[in-house]
Design a protein around this nucleic acid. Structure first.
Lengths: 232, 232
DNA sequence: TAGTGGTCTAGACCACCCT
DNA sequence: GGGTGGTCTAGACCACTAC
């Protein structure tokens, strides 16, 4: 029994050491929280917090009565930030501005309505914008907004505030989905971003919800060179 | 003072409701943990856990003495899974196999050595593979492995076990970096994936570390159509 | 059914940092 | 200096599930 490993970070570090050093190889059954607490000379809650986070990271598999095991093929989790577009540009030191290409209100096509989980009769706002970094086209944005949730946006001058930023501040979402992919730029995307047709562009599709109801669905097409960074 | 909102999930739900409903608009200073605990009729630790997770999600900004505020432009966090390649393919119901195109041991070029943070004199293993889903090329893998960390891999038959899976099991990393991007396929990538040159391909660059030392650095080039999904 | 993790409590002390 | 969040403790009860 060692003494004074009593902060949950220290406990977590030691557990991680035993896993990576293969003291506890994949599949190994770990001691119980109570046993580890005794060994480390700390409270069970401290061990619990350390192990809970490792389980969240995909390294441990915990189940009541079954105990805690080292995961065989860990599914590690990467966390990546989703900032407001303006902040993302300005953080690189560049100047940001945006232009609205299209803004109309009407019934979305059926394909979009199902994607938005909207009543096909419901009205939505269609928006197409280009975001610039240092006056260079940076991002082409195609968006549908559910007016049943955020009717107030009808009165907003979206040439002054981007819909992205307005929505983030005025209609925080409870959860959302994101998808990342690559594709060859279409003619209209190439024109909007001032790039060659068929250039490889990075695409983010994102839908955000307030409870069960969708707020907005957006397709972000980034000019070539864009990279998303993340840590594991 | 309401009664029996005593689980941290209930507390978190209620806090989230007040934020999204703009009861607490962006920038608002929230009551202290002690006050909320009294209001909800639960222990301060319960409120703390609920708020800590919301802060981790980027919705709240917490500081000692300064109190807790609703973040103005929340930088939301997306979490995405990074499974072992074989598992990723098999989860779609497809059969997985892989082929090794190149496997050699030697000094890496200087550019790679700096990228790997390796002594230029250190030896590394160079690996190029293709992963298949239902016998169709799915992923082109270019990898450098730091033999100073995992010398044992020299004796492994990497045509039987993929380096990806072997490393995940035998040399768990403590942390890593990931980058996602899009690019037009080069000639060699197009040949490996059996696609047209200049097709848009999705690229993941990943480096993993054991403490300060790099374990491996890999570039994964996915065949067109590949999408990474995530939730916010 | 018994053992394990999941959670809550009441209290305490501490670190940080705003005023 | 004082108020706030960060964390730890010792104990308790509960929920799940492997056996």
């Amino acid at each position: 029994m060692q003494t004074s490993v009593n902060s949950w970070r220290q406990v977590q570090e030691e557990l991680l050491r035993r896993i990576t050093s293969r003291d506890w190889p994949p599949g190994e059954l770990l001691p119980t929280e109570t046993e580890l607490a005794k060994e480390f000379g700390c409270a069970r809650a401290t061990v619990n917090r350390a192990m809970r986070e490792l389980a969240g990271a995909g390294l441990l598999d915990r189940r009541r009565k079954g105990g805690t095991r080292v995961v065989i093929n860990p599914v590690r989790k990467a966390t990546l930030d989703i900032p407001v577009i303006r902040a993302e540009v300005e953080q690189t030191g560049a100047r940001w501005h945006h232009e609205v290409l299209e803004r109309k209100i009407g019934k979305p096509p059926v394909s979009v309505a199902t994607q938005l989980a909207l009543d096909p009769e419901a009205h939505a706002m269609r928006l197409r914008c280009v975001h610039f970094a240092n006056r260079k086209p940076f991002l082409y944005e195609k968006r549908w907004i559910n007016l049943a949730i955020v009717p107030a946006i009808k009165a907003v001058d979206l040439t002054q505030v981007s819909a992205n930023e307005w929505l983030v501040q005025q209609a925080p979402f409870t959860h959302g989905q994101v998808a990342f992919s690559a594709k060859n730029a279409t003619t209209s995307e190439a024109r909007a971003l001032d790039i060659a047709v068929k250039s490889a562009v990075f695409v983010i599709d994102r839908s955000t919800f307030s409870g069960e109801q969708i707020i907005t669905s957006v397709t972000l097409t980034y000019a070539p060179g864009y990279t998303v960074h993340s840590t594991i």
